[in-house]
């Protein structure tokens, strides 16, 4: 392409985009994407307020009734004698258990890697980076085989412990401490007679609130949404977290699995309600945490 060509293209594009028609095109494109991202969520919320019949015949974007919502609610929580309640409880147990261990393990580790010197520091850091970028499903089957040897399969620990290994959290903590806490501050505390442990608890930890919240956010969201790990580790329905429990509900929905029609069958709006409930905690966290998401995912790129 010659320079003249490029120039001509540019002028033409300019008139396309800054003119009236350009704005219209951009507006239409944006509108299409807004609909694409928003329709499924809006529809899902409305679907929980309809009866199975109403879902199919009524306008998809009009709400149903409170009584239908209550009926769906009853059907969902009546499913297999309240299985859904225990699934949500399991999810909370796993996600919070992993969260606590993650924080206890990764905050001191990230601190030590950022602000202290020790042998293997670099090795540990490189290992952390590499494992952090491996998708967390890649090691699930090997971990299953390993835990199978020690007989932990089926116990809550078989999901909590692997989820508590959270290199991303360590990396975030490392970045935070190496950029936000000056080494001089620690040196001053040491001069004043603090032991290494006191330096950490009295100087570093009080400054760590933002990073604790950030690591907690990522750990919780990831654990709550984890499907493959619990799916593999927990053979019995009693131990399912809600994400895996959804598969049981799906299998009992005649609309998707015709062989399941029967006393325990689940109607579509009930399944929709289950979907909403399965993401509710994460959705609530997400509503307030857009800033966190950006801060976390751009942490790697701030060092130019």
């Amino acid at each position: 392409m010659t320079t003249v060509d490029i120039g001509r293209h540019a002028t033409r594009r300019r008139s396309d985009l800054s003119g009236w028609s350009g704005r219209t095109i951009v507006g239409v494109v944006i509108a299409i994407f807004v609909l694409f991202f928003a329709i499924p969520i809006v529809w899902l919320l409305l679907a929980t307020t309809k009866s199975a019949h109403g879902l199919i015949v009524s306008d998809p974007f009009l709400p149903g009734s409170i009584s239908d919502f209550a009926a769906n609610w009853d059907q969902l929580f009546g499913f297999q004698d309240g299985a859904v309640t225990s699934w949500v409880g399991n999810s909370a147990l796993y996600a919070l258990g992993a969260l606590v261990i993650t924080l206890i393990a990764s905050i001191p580790a990230g601190y030590a890697m950022a602000l202290t010197e020790f042998k293997f520091r670099r090795l540990l850091l490189v290992l952390t980076l590499i494992v952090m970028l491996i998708p967390n499903t890649a090691l699930v089957l090997p971990i299953f085989l390993e835990l199978n040897v020690v007989g932990l399969i089926g116990s809550p620990l078989s999901v909590i412990l692997p989820m508590a290994f959270f290199p991303f959290g360590v990396y975030l903590t490392y970045i935070y401490f190496s950029t936000s806490v000056p080494r001089d501050l620690l040196a001053a505390a040491r001069l004043d007679g603090c032991s290494e442990f006191q330096v950490f608890t009295r100087v570093a930890l009080p400054l760590a609130a933002p990073i604790i919240a950030l690591v907690g956010f990522f750990s919780f969201v990831q654990s709550w949404n984890n499907f493959f790990l619990p799916f593999v580790m927990l053979p019995s329905s009693d131990g399912y977290p809600v994400q895996v429990g959804l598969t049981s509900l799906l299998a009992s929905t005649p609309a998707f699995n015709p062989s399941s029609a029967g006393a325990q069958s689940v109607q579509l709006p009930t399944l929709a309600l289950a979907t909403v409930i399965s993401v509710l905690p994460v959705l609530i966290v997400f509503l307030f945490a857009q800033r966190f998401l950006v801060a976390g995912m751009t942490a790697g790129g701030t060092k130019e």
Binding site: F37, P40, I41, V221, N225, N226, F227, Q243, V244, L246, T247, T275, S278, V279, V282, L283, V285, F286, L287, L293
Partner: peptide, 9 residues
């Protein structure tokens, strides 16, 4: 916002 609905959901 759809990012909140990961995995099975």
């Amino acid at each position: 916002l759809p990012g909140a609905l990961a995995g099975a959901s």
